[in-house]
């Protein structure tokens, strides 16, 4: 166990090397756009992490922005997850419906989400509603497509069996179609989670709270260390979200595969 832990640590040998090179190189360059990482960390602590340990060291600025951002991100992700899965499965099970809306979906997917931001700002005025709408619209496509593909790939034998046993529509959905589409749905949800972070930042750049607006403020006041700090903060957030998702996915899919084996 301990040996495994150290072996894992050893594998990270390049990380301190890169950090050291980064520090030395930026100190040697003394370029205002490339502050050394040590200064970025100090700046991050001054700006956001000078609070008490009970709030994960976040101070009032951080507490006023980070939870809001996360809330909007998760709200948009949840809405697009539910809508995307339901509509996607419907699309996957009904070729006729799919034929009718396919061009619309292809078009919606091809729209670059940031280009929609001015439109959403005009429609909903700046605020949480507009931000959640932007996130939802921008990230729903991967879920939709993957759910449709998953639903299309349901084993016909399972469907026949469900028909023979006269499963109700709801029961067929929850016990046959949804479980067999789950791996694909998770692939889509994971893609849309990383997209959600991007759209969260974009949609907050023009607002007054959230990590995106912190980034904008730092940029406007030429606080380069603050800008770098915000980028690192967002990277860390993205990394953590992805790790949490992977753990949940592994749990959900282990159940899925062992259930498949039992059958």
């Amino acid at each position: 166990m301990i040996r495994k832990f150290f072996a894992g640590l050893l594998r990270l040998w390049l990380v301190p090397v890169v950090l050291a090179v980064w520090e030395v190189a930026t100190r040697a360059m003394e370029h205002p756009f490339f502050p050394p990482p040590s200064q970025i960390v100090v700046r991050m602590r001054d700006l956001w992490f000078s609070g008490s340990p009970s709030t994960l060291w976040m101070n009032d600025t951080a507490l006023g922005n980070i939870p809001n951002s996360l809330g909007r991100l998760l709200a948009g992700w949840a809405v697009s997850g539910v809508v995307g899965v339901v509509v996607g499965i419907w699309l996957g099970r009904s070729p006729m419906f799919f034929r009718f809306v396919d061009p619309l979906i292809q078009f919606g997917r091809a729209l670059p989400p940031p280009a929609l931001l001015p439109l959403f700002m005009a429609l909903f005025s700046i605020g949480t509603r507009m931000q959640v709408a932007t996130i939802t619209f921008g990230i729903i496509w991967p879920v939709l497509f993957n759910a449709a593909e998953g639903a299309r790939g349901v084993d016909p034998l399972h469907l026949e069996t469900a028909r023979v046993f006269r499963f109700s529509r709801a029961r067929r959905f929850f016990t046959v179609i949804l479980p067999s589409a789950t791996p694909k749905i998770f692939a889509g949800l994971r893609l849309s989670l990383s997209l959600a972070l991007i759209l969260m930042v974009i949609s907050e750049l023009f607002s007054t709270d959230g990590i995106g607006s912190m980034l904008r403020d730092a940029q406007r006041s030429f606080d380069l260390r603050g800008v770098w700090g915000a980028v690192i903060l967002l990277g860390t957030l993205g990394y953590l979200l992805n790790q949490v998702f992977l753990v949940v996915e592994r749990k959900a899919l282990t159940w899925h595969y062992s259930a498949k084996k039992l059958v």
């Binding site: 756009f33 940031p114 990383s194 972070l197 991007i198 969260m200 930042v201 974009i202 980034l215 904008r216 730092a218 940029q219 380069l224 800008v227 770098w228 915000a230 980028v231 967002l234 990277g235 957030l237 993205g238 990394y239 979200l241 992805n242």
Partner: peptide, 14 residues
Amino acid sequence: RPIPSVAIIPLASF
């Protein structure tokens, strides 16, 4: 990889 690309735009504009 998880660093949202858009977050780098303000940095890159400098």
